[in-house]
Amino acid sequence: MADAELSSQADQLYDQMEYAKIVEILEPKKECDDVELLWRLARAMYEQHKRLGSDAEKLSYLQQGKVTVERAMQLNDKHPNCHKWMAIYLNAITKLQGSRAQIEQGQVIKGHMLKACEYGPSDPTNWHLIGMWAFTVADISWTMRKLAQVIFGEPPKATFQEALEYFLKAEEAQPGSYSMNLLMIAKSYQKLKDNDNAIVYLKKTRDYPVKTMDDQQAHKEAVDLLKYLGVKD
């Protein structure tokens, strides 16, 4: 099968959440020089790692997937999906490795996310990912930030306003494409004490068609937050 056909097949299987099948058909190509096949293999491996049992198994599998991303990036370091998946892999790996790794790699992860946005500005996922990074960093408590500074050095910095701007860019790139992005817009507005706009986006999240696990989580959080804010309709 031609590489272009394999890429198309991988995308169809990804939409069907057949991640193991994608790995099966693309793994023989892991030493190839086709960036499009390599990042798709890495994408499927990332989804597959979620189905593994222990953290040790997940970490080992993620590190294998990261090697595939690294190969793709060596071939084309201006491909937005190479930077996107490198950021995703580094974020997942450092979460399993602990706080020190997260802080030490924080700026590296942000750098890959910004490159993904630079080279792929029309992909809403890129903006959503950098928004999630900014929101998570902004949400670190003052005490934990000071502790991290003392133990590990200067931690990364971000604000909720910055996170909101990234989430809004994701929504602008492809309106209504991702329930979790709508939720994060709402949560960012809430953090900024703008409950009126938060409620608007919470209602959009609540009414979003539930098809995936992310949709289910977003719907539940939206319903709970609307109750917390006293919204009954």
Rank of each mutant, 00 (worst) to 15 (best):
W133K: 00
A163H: 00
D214T: 06
K191G: 02
L168V: 11
K21W: 04
A101H: 14
Y201Q: 04
L59H: 07
H49M: 15
S141R: 15
K21D: 07
L13K: 10
K110D: 07
L6I: 13
T212I: 13
K169N: 14
V231H: 09
D233C: 11
Q102G: 03
K95F: 04
D33W: 04
Y189T: 07
K187R: 11
P80H: 13
D34S: 05
T212K: 13
V108E: 11
D139C: 09
T159H: 03
A198G: 10
E154K: 14
A72F: 10
D194F: 03
L225A: 01
Q105S: 08
M132R: 05
M86R: 09
S188T: 08
K232T: 15
Q12S: 08
I93S: 00
E24K: 12
Y46I: 05
M113N: 11
I88D: 06
Y166V: 12
D207R: 01
D196A: 08
E70R: 12
A72R: 15
E162T: 02
L41D: 09
I185N: 07
E162R: 04
T143H: 12
D3N: 10
A101I: 12
H83I: 02
K204V: 05
K115G: 03
T159D: 05
E18W: 06
K21I: 09
Q97S: 07
D207Y: 03
T125F: 08
L52K: 15
P28H: 13
C32Y: 10
D15A: 14
N91E: 00
R145I: 15
M17A: 04
I93N: 01
E57Y: 01
E221S: 05
I185C: 02
D123E: 11
K169G: 09
Q105V: 09
V200A: 03
A218H: 04
T94R: 05
K211R: 05
Y61P: 08
Q161T: 14
N197V: 00
L38Y: 14
G111K: 01
K110C: 05
N197K: 06
L26C: 02
N181P: 07
P80C: 08
P156H: 10
F167S: 01
A87H: 12
K30C: 01
W127N: 00
A72L: 10
P175A: 02
L41C: 05
Q16D: 11
K227W: 04
L37T: 13
L183P: 06
P80T: 13
Q161H: 12
V137A: 14
A116N: 15
Q74R: 12
L164Q: 10
P156G: 12
A186T: 13
K21N: 04
L226D: 10
L59Y: 10
N81R: 14
V210Q: 15
S177N: 02
K211M: 07
I185K: 00
D233W: 13
G230A: 06
V223I: 13
M45F: 08
E172G: 01
A116K: 15
L26R: 03
I93C: 07
E27P: 04
M184D: 10
W127K: 06
A87T: 15
E172F: 09
I25C: 07
K232M: 06
P209C: 09
N91S: 08
E36A: 03
Y61R: 11
A148C: 00
P121D: 05
